[in-house]
Design a protein around this nucleic acid. Structure first.
Lengths: 126, 126
DNA sequence: TGCGGTACTTACCTTTTGGTGAGCAAGGAG
DNA sequence: CTCCTTGCTCACCAAAAGGTAAGTACCGCA
């Protein structure tokens, strides 16, 4: 994938934002990084139930290209890579909060199932 | 009408909300319905540049099943169907506003292309 | 008579997305 | 010596999403 200019022309801001968060795990990665500040690759993998390494890398790379996350590589003997949110990523997370509330509301109203990730806040309901 | 339980268990509210707005045109449909109140099928189609009838119907049906839009059929000689937002759909739209702002901001910052729908404000016409 | 508009459905195809499992390089545990 | 760990990459597949074109039934317009 090319670095910055990801997708075609957008119709509106929602369009552009949705493009950037679309992906099975991106919202979760954003949330993990938001709640924990800095996370290593394997920590992220363990935090997302069922994610494959390929997808996690792929999403992380896209988010890096989109300027949402910072990636820091330590040239150590066991590889160590740390991910954290950029200002833009943090702002995106803020912008996602109302959406998260709407979703939580919806889950309650419709009695939908919720799966909690091990290591994250077990009670998403509040 | 309980054709609701679309996707598997959610991990958080963002997940549930993203599931409901994921789809190439759903955000736009939401926006059209929000700004115009009531729209007919063909009006929606003309408002979304490049949408196919199949996708529009499909998205509209899903959104109906998800309780986001109301669908009113008039048994008239030329078929007439009107779509409008439900309370839930309107609330979702409200929740999407910050995201839209973030996206608009991003478009400006990165100098991305914007395509205007005929009927909306146009600036970069071809 | 023939076309265009209304709101779809259906069949078929391509593109995109996501998943599986392997391998790599280097070290530590058993 | 072999397995497990870290953070990936690569090849291959399956499923989902989306697009194209046609058909349906009926009407008004020229």
């Amino acid at each position: 994938m090319a670095q910055a200019p990801r997708n075609g022309p957008y119709i509106c801001g929602i369009d552009a934002a949705l493009d950037v968060v679309s992906g099975k795990w991106k919202g979760l990665v954003l949330w993990e990084l938001h709640t924990h500040g800095v996370r290593r690759f394997a920590e992220l993998r363990r935090a997302l139930p069922g994610v494959s390494e390929k997808m996690l890398t792929q999403h992380l790379r896209q988010m890096e290209a989109d300027g949402l996350v910072d990636r820091t590589v330590y040239a150590e003997v066991p590889p160590k890579v740390e991910y954290s949110l950029t200002a833009s990523g943090a702002a995106l997370n803020e912008a996602l909060l109302p959406l998260g509330e709407w979703g939580r509301d919806r889950i309650h109203r419709h009695g939908l199932d919720v799966v909690a990730a091990p290591g994250t806040s077990a009670s998403t309901a509040s």
